[in-house]
């Protein structure tokens, strides 16, 4: 078990290196000179050159790449060109908002999604099933910015629609993000549970005289939720890395909003930092899913 987990962690190292390379390379070929971005117009040539030298922008790509990796390993993601502050600090400041929103919307999606999926599967083809699957499908398919705007418009007199000053500010963004995740989880739970309920071992469990509740609880759910847990782990990692659109629409100072700002202002170190931060979280989420998977499913455990 520990060996399996250790192996999985080791595999993430080359993935991480490749990823940083990709991000670094892409943002390097993007047109636009950072110094001019920083200094505005009408600056003397020699000042630009000096600036460029001090930022090591004249060094070869590969040298800069390894320097970036070295700095990154020391927790330094560079200085924001626009805000002139360390990127690490900016992300650290923004992360608590994103974390709160991610935790809230994940909890919302689990608490709504899993029971709805179970009830739908048990009451297959009933009105309740069709209704909840319809609502789920709506959540999955509607663009979040549209749902966000509609909710803002509907509840503008009751709830705060922007900022992150009080817990009430989190209600609408949580629903916006949680709804689509809950929809996905509900639909996945339903279809998995239906599959499992048709299987032979469920018939065996029933032949033992277990009540329908116990059959579902003890025998069906564990099997049906294995794939759902994978989705949940990946979902929470992508929520943690910031829901760029939702955070922007609700003007929340989270990581997603930070990335959007960085794109708008061509702030390469900041963008690079947020993208890498996102990617690391997603890799961690996948790792978590993998480990959870092997904890729940004895067949995956490597001897």
């Amino acid at each position: 078990m520990a060996k399996h987990i250790a192996k999985r962690i080791l595999i993430t190292i080359p993935v991480l290196l490749g990823l940083v390379f990709l991000v670094f390379f892409m943002l390097n070929v993007v047109p636009g000179d950072p110094v001019t971005v920083m200094m505005r117009e009408h600056v003397k040539e020699d000042l630009i050159d000096r600036m460029r030298q001090s930022m090591h922008l004249d060094d070869p790509f590969i040298v800069r790449y390894f320097r970036y990796i070295w700095d990154m390993l020391h927790g330094d993601l560079g200085i924001s060109w626009k805000l002139n502050r360390p990127v690490t600090g900016l992300i650290a400041n923004a992360f608590p908002y994103t974390l709160k929103l991610a935790v809230a919307s994940s909890l919302f999606s689990w608490i709504m999604g899993i029971p709805v999926g179970i009830i739908s599967a048990v009451k297959k083809n009933s009105l309740l099933d069709h209704l909840s699957m319809g609502i789920s499908l709506f959540g999955v398919s509607m663009p979040v910015f549209w749902v966000a705007l509609i909710l803002q418009n509907t509840f503008k007199n009751v709830l705060p629609i922007s900022g992150a000053d009080s817990w009430q500010c989190y209600i609408l963004p949580t629903i916006v993000l949680g709804w689509s995740s809950a929809g996905r989880i509900a639909r996945l739970t339903r279809s998995n549970l239906l599959d499992v309920l048709r299987s032979d071992y469920i018939r065996t469990a029933r032949s033992k005289g277990l009540s329908p509740l116990k059959v579902i609880n003890r025998h069906a759910l564990k099997n049906a939720l294995i794939p759902v847990i994978t989705v949940m782990a990946i979902q929470i990692s992508s929520l943690l890395s910031g829901a760029a659109i939702t955070e922007s629409v609700f003007a929340m100072p989270g990581v997603g909003g930070l990335a959007v700002e960085a794109i708008k202002k061509r702030d390469m170190p900041l963008l690079q930092g947020t993208v890498i931060f996102t990617a690391v979280l997603i890799i961690a989420g996948n790792l978590l899913a993998d480990v959870l998977y092997s904890v729940i499913d004895p067949r995956i455990r490597v001897e």
Binding site: D200, Y201, R203, S207, H219, K222, I226, I296, D297
Partner: peptide, 12 residues
């Protein structure tokens, strides 16, 4: 039942 492979719950 016929199939001892599938008639037992794999995760218990």
């Amino acid at each position: 039942f016929q199939e001892p492979m599938t008639s037992l719950n794999p995760v218990i």
